[in-house]
């Protein structure tokens, strides 16, 4: 498959060196995966999972520690210039010059990528048209709304016609409507031309819509596959049972009903096929202890939970490293 891989990462590790107040930090450890040409791949993980470090390395903003990365067959270290030309990068933090107009922002970006003259003018006009920026082309970037600014970022990143687009939490700070619109633009682009998309995200609904996902936790690659494949690794359905005395209930459920459960964040979780049949038994057997029972089909959150024993959101607060 490496022949058709747009991005190939092999055994990548990265350590932030020790600084005055913090010890050295292993941000990535033995990560390997491939991104297929023309498909989208999501790097999913809580803060501190290493996905932002991975983004930085793929965007050529940081050197890989050990291991190798090739992008369209070019080594990311030795053939940096070729790699950079084939990448369009959208950062989490905006990269617009707010004092310049939309048009100037896009034009200057094109020149940094070697476009000039009529070719540049054509590309800028096409981008302004494509992303519906016409009426704002001569406004200073600082006057635009958040959603509009993101569109300019996207226009900038795609101006030089890169084959691979990599994005770092691109919809951070956007309201749901603007987020949907941003993704609609990306989907349209995908259907127009073959564009490989690599994006980091910690939003489950965004991740669901991608072709494949790489789930990262504490610098390691936990799982790799389509959203459907990943969800299929969770055995059956998911029940969560809330109780004032979860430990007691856990023991009783096992003794009396033979139901195995895991206690995670003071909530009991049961994973098994046909789990809905257990609901009346639990409620009838422990009317006092069982305060709420929820049934759900497995989600990506459950995949993460199943592999780590921690909830996604909790991991988010722990935040180890940048």
């Amino acid at each position: 498959m490496s022949g058709s891989a747009a991005v190939s990462v092999r055994d990548l590790s990265f350590t932030y060196p020790a600084a005055r107040k913090s010890p050295a930090l292993l941000a990535l450890s033995g990560v390997s995966f491939e991104a297929e040409k023309g498909k989208s791949l999501g790097l999913l993980g809580p803060n501190g999972s290493g996905k932002s470090t991975l983004f930085k390395i793929l965007a050529t903003a940081a050197h890989p520690g050990s291991g190798s990365i090739s992008i369209l067959g070019h080594d990311i270290v030795r053939e940096r210039a070729a790699v950079r030309r084939s990448l369009g990068v959208v950062f989490q933090h905006p990269s617009l010059d707010l004092k310049l107009t939309v048009n100037e922002n896009i034009r200057f970006q094109g020149r940094l990528y070697g476009l000039s003259g009529p070719a540049l003018s054509r590309a800028v006009d096409a981008a302004v048209e494509r992303f519906g920026l016409g009426s704002h082309a001569n406004s200073a970037a600082e006057t635009l709304s958040g959603g509009m600014r993101r569109r300019v970022e996207l226009a900038k990143a795609l101006l030089h016609g890169p084959e691979i687009l990599i994005l770092d939490e691109p919809t951070t700070g956007l309201d749901p409507a603007a987020r949907r619109e941003f993704w609609r633009h990306l989907q349209d682009l995908r259907s127009e031309r073959s564009l490989t998309i690599l994006t980091t995200t910690h939003l489950m609904d965004e991740a669901e819509a991608l072709d494949r996902l790489a789930i990262l936790d504490r610098g390691r690659l936990l799982a790799l596959g389509t959203p459907a494949e990943l969800k299929a690794t969770v055995s059956g359905d998911v029940l969560t049972v809330e109780s004032a005395e979860p430990q007691k209930l856990q023991a009783l459920m096992l003794d009396k009903l033979g139901i195995k459960s895991r206690l995670i964040d003071a909530v009991l979780r049961v994973e098994q096929a046909q789990a809905h049949l257990l609901i009346p038994r639990i409620v009838e057997s422990f009317p006092e202890l069982a305060q709420a029972v929820h049934f759900s089909k497995p989600s990506l959150e459950d995949v993460f939970l199943g592999k780590t024993g921690r909830r996604f959101e909790i991991g988010k607060k722990e935040g180890m490293g940048p």
């Binding site: 903003a61 950079r84 030309r85 950062f91 933090h93 990269s95 707010l98 940094l112 990528y113 900038k156």
Partner: peptide, 13 residues
Amino acid sequence: KEGFLQAVLVSPS
């Protein structure tokens, strides 16, 4: 800080 530089630094320039 504002992020303009990051885009310049990953460009082929």
